[in-house]
Design a protein around this nucleic acid. Structure first.
Lengths: 143, 143
DNA sequence: TTGTCATATCATGATATTATGATATGTTTT
DNA sequence: AAAACATATCATAATATCATGATATGACAA
């Protein structure tokens, strides 16, 4: 299982590094912005590689989820092990409604999944991207 | 330069994979939540590896930045090449105030840095974490 | 030193998000 | 079927965020 995680992680990384490599453009333009004459070449180049409006919107919706301490706590709990709603409320000292609502948000954004086991719901993270983003963010703020 | 990016990227990855490996805990508990008797063992285990309140708060502030399409667009432009404020407004079709305000937010959160060149300000991303998080998020939503 | 330009800051109304109380749903136990 | 329990949904008041107009700052050119 640990090995599996490793492999998945490395596949993701490979893709990222590759994209980073391909995207790298050497460029130096020294002209100055003027009212009807911005750095046209740079602007054109840079616009070309932009995503669609919808992709930016989806992506921001996705990241918005990480922008709340409660959800981040839930994510970090679930990165250690799968838990049910009442365990999460207990661990965080938050009432069940709050946790359940945030889990709904996390579910709607494909960040956690759950498995019903009788009256219980066992929640877990959907994939490695989630833990990954969490860790990279943590590395950044700890610098 | 490309090689440098590759190396930095791989160092980051190594750390992440390592943490992921160490954090992985094999655990199966099949008891059921009851009013005064949650999965105490799981709750205890999971609480132990939590971050501090401040870390969650900082981390969520950091991620909040990615949760807005305009800022995401700016980040994606700057991941291609360094740009000045007016180029960014031009490329995004947004007024200068909006871009400048968002750049202030990005600066305050250590996501972009800038270099004054006369009356111009040339903005760039602070480090590889930023591009990395962007890419992993994109991979996730494109799945 | 006056004008122009690039950028920054401030204030604000519109909109979105938060945690939570009240309540509903659905499952197990008796 | 009634009670107990785990979870989900709804409504809401408090708070935060967004884009932008108005305005300030600071650099360069005439």
């Amino acid at each position: 299982m640990t090995t599996f995680k490793y492999v998945v992680c490395n596949i993701i990384i490979y893709n990222i590094c590759d994209t980073m490599k391909n995207n790298y453009l050497e460029n130096e333009s020294d002209d100055i912005c003027e009212v009807f004459d911005v750095h046209d070449d740079a602007v054109a180049r840079v616009k070309e590689q932009m995503l669609s409006e919808e992709e930016y919107s989806d992506l921001s919706e996705f990241f918005k989820i990480f922008g709340n301490p409660t959800r981040l706590k839930i994510i970090s709990l679930l990165s250690a092990e799968d838990l049910c709603v009442c365990d999460i409320s207990e661990a965080l000292g938050l009432n069940q409604t709050t946790v359940s609502n945030q889990l709904r948000v996390l579910r709607a954004n494909n960040i956690v999944k759950y498995q019903k086991e009788g009256k219980m719901a066992r929640y877990s993270l959907t994939d490695e991207h989630i833990e990954m983003i969490f860790k990279v963010g943590l590395e950044h703020i700890l610098e």
